[in-house]
């Protein structure tokens, strides 16, 4: 195109909004992560790297690891359950496909906390599952199903699986099935054809799904809070505590930087794999 450089008038509102309410706040977070905390709240103008040095403490190290483990596990599980679901739905006739996706997405419109509440009722020590097992005489005393790492993973997978499924579904649905038939024709078994043709071709969708699951899973503090009780502290909970109870913004900001780094890392991987230039392609 030989269009000259020019900005359409209608871009300006978005431009100004983005600078004021996206760029500026984020830059400010970076800045305060290098400042000293104020006496009661806020920050002073003293520049320091203490906030980052503080993170070397093994206590924080284990929180980072646990967060990472949880995010990876959540992503892996949503993929393991979600991909086959998306794949099988794509094999259905077109009419049914729409219905299935609608059924999948409908709960998504209901407050996620309400849905989480359902799991809490199910898993509580006096909850549905325990009552059922006790009454059937399979167990003698209630199992500890809630308030542990596993419960948090269940909550995360449950909340984020639709993202993975939808992303995989979009990718699989666009696929040209004759390629798979060609692979079968050339002697590949069904499984071999899936691994060598279908999976690589739908990889962009898988990776986009991974980004959409991995990134929020690091920050959803209310899930680990409600499902994990006080025991499971993830980086998201830590940031929240630093911001509210401890009123240590600079340290909270420094912790956010770690999370930001992880986010940028996975988006970089996504761009490498999918070859996409714009973040918008994730949707």
């Amino acid at each position: 195109m030989e269009k000259k450089r020019h900005i359409s008038l209608s871009v300006w509102p978005l431009y100004i909004w983005t600078v004021l309410f996206v760029a500026l706040p984020l830059v400010y977070v970076v800045v305060i992560s290098f400042l000293q905390r104020g006496d009661t709240w806020g920050v002073t103008d003293q520049v320091t790297i203490d906030n980052y040095v503080k993170m070397v403490d093994p206590m924080y190290g284990s929180i980072f690891l646990e967060t990472l483990a949880m995010a990876v596990l959540t992503t892996a599980l949503t993929f393991l359950f979600g991909y086959p679901f998306a794949y099988y739905v794509c094999k259905l006739p077109a009419r049914l496909r729409g219905v299935m996706i609608l059924l999948l997405m409908a709960p998504f419109w209901i407050n996620s906390l309400c849905r989480l509440n359902g799991w809490m009722i199910l898993l509580k020590s006096n909850g549905v599952i325990n009552s059922l097992l006790l009454n059937l005489g399979i167990i003698d005393e209630p199992l500890k199903l809630l308030y542990n790492f596993g419960a948090v993973v269940v909550g995360m997978v449950y909340a984020l699986a639709p993202f993975m499924i939808l992303s995989c579904y979009n990718s699989i649905e666009k696929m040209d099935w004759s390629v798979v038939e060609a692979a079968r024709d050339l002697g590949a078994s069904a499984w071999k054809a899936f691994v060598t043709v279908t999976l690589p071709l739908t990889m962009p969708g898988v990776v986009a799904g991974c980004v959409l699951v991995f990134v929020p899973s690091m920050g959803l503090f209310f899930i680990s809070d409600l499902m994990g009780g006080a025991k499971t502290v993830l980086i998201g909970n830590l940031i929240r505590t630093e911001l509210t109870a401890a009123r240590n913004w600079p340290f909270g900001a420094a912790l956010s930087m770690v999370m930001l780094l992880a986010t940028v890392g996975i988006i970089w991987v996504y761009k490498r794999v999918s070859g996409s230039k714009s973040l918008g392609d994730l949707m």
């Binding site: 706040p25 984020l26 980004v211 690091m218 998201g236 999370m259 930001l260 973040l279 994730l282």
Partner: peptide, 8 residues
Amino acid sequence: MMLPEIIL
């Protein structure tokens, strides 16, 4: 859309 909400 991409950032963990807690950072924003």
